[in-house]
Design a protein around this nucleic acid. Sequence first.
RNA 1: GCCCCGUUCGUCUAGUGGCCUAGGACGCCGGCCUCUCACGCCGGUAACAGGGGUUCGACUCCCCUACGGGGCGCCA
Length: 522
Amino acid sequence: MRLVFEQAHRRFPHSRGAPYRSGNLMLHGWHISRIPTAIDNQMSDKTRSASAPVVRFAPSPTGFLHIGGARTALFNWLYAKGRGGTLLLRIEDTDHERNSTEAVAAIIDGLKWLELDWHGEPVSQFAQVHRHCAVADELLKDGHAYRCYLTPAELDQMRKTAEAEKRPLAIRSPWRDRDPKEAPADAPYVIRLKTPGEGETIIDDKVQGRVVFPNKDLDDFIIVRSDGNPTYNLAVVVDDHDMGVTHVIRGVDHLTNAARQLQVYKAMDWDVPVFAHVPLIHGPDGAKLSKRHGALGIEAYREMGFLPSALRNHLVRLGWSHGNDEIISTGQMIDWFDFDAIGRSPGRFDFAKLEDLNGHYIKSADDLELMQRLEDILPYVENGAEILERLDANTRAKLMAAIPSLRERAKTLKELLEGARYLFAERPIALDDKAAKLLDGADARKRLSALLPKLEAITSWEAPRLEETVRAFAEIEGAKLGKVAQPLRAALTGRSVSPPVFDVMAVLGREEALARIRDQAN
RNA sequence: GCCCCGUUCGUCUAGUGGCCUAGGACGCCGGCCUCUCACGCCGGUAACAGGGGUUCGACUCCCCUACGGGGCGCCA
């Protein structure tokens, strides 16, 4: 399938006049499709109410879905869901050299895991080159753009001069007003947009407010490269327009692009979408997210044992608020989310808070869902393979039975699994240092021996009955419950920490529990 | 360097001129509960970057400075 995608890229060389492409691409089981034609749009327009927003999430497939992208996707999704709108997914793959099909798969996988759905098939921006070029030609024809024959060396010189004079570089090519007939034959050229040069470009941003850019600072940016490929700033505008996008919600790093893109909208006389540029997310130290810290792929969070609901909750609270609400269900998010409550300053990703949130969601999750998620991450966690090996009908039932007591003390699925290890341990179970110490005292093992017959006499092996028995025993012994319960815990789990011992015994089952106690009694 | 944006407890934030001796959450510290660990509960620590204005009154409005961030590609 990957081949198909690569082939398609090859089939449409980056030169003018490549054949128009139709049909869809398949990749990792996902269709990457063309933007529907105008006729298709008319059809789907009927199903959309006039006021319902159309938003899009447009990641570039240069890597995995990172946390900032995930939040952008979430904001778009929430905005659409809350208003009966549509979320579209477009892969910005025009820079074929830096793209990878693995990245597309990772992004799609990440979105699916986060449970963010979109409408239709993901769209490949690259598949639209011809349309982008057609628009560029139109711009050229109408005099809104021009061919520029400036060489890299000349550009470099301009840059240096600007720097020396300490003024910003705003390229206004001499070719802007030159007669095209003077153009050197066969020389490579780029197509630049003829921008106003004077006045102001105003972005009325839903988050950033009214942002004014002096046009003198906006240069005649390139819309088509010398190899005939359209650039990003042209492609987004054309695609957003063709896809009927009404609201562009993306990171602030695109704010200055919005000013440039606005020039394209104006030149084409197209409706301008509503812009909302949301602040970025920083790493724990306040610095920009980098690969070293913070900028993990979304799948890393899954492997750390976080629930998508918890991640969504944390993500939405980063930069957006609804009064003092902290734990916000997806339904509430959808109802409440709007631009006016988005702040303008960047937030930091806080693992401690995510863990706390995750703990809440683990507590309230459905047993079956939890079980499923647990099994899902088994391949990725330490000792997971071991557990996976021993997971059969019997152990699965035990795990299921233990979940209520385990979930209370776990902040992540990983911790939950860690707490469940006693279920999978094989006799004689190994004691950790603290557990060994609990059984070290002169009385501990003796007590276990004395307790054994009482436990063996129990007919209904259930937590309340077990507790009753042990408590009565402790009383007769004149010992505090802890003096009996702790050695018991050590014998049953090999550790000093576990869910309540009576629950442990119940979950383990009569035979296994008694056998473990016998192993440690003298 | 130039352009744009920001700055409330350690962190995420509430706050839209008087309700603020600034509230919540996470974290941290203490206590209670207790068979361990958690949970839960109670209590504590801790912030309006600095300086000028405007106003009867500024966390809230304006200006400057400092600091932080983003952008300034034939990347997206």
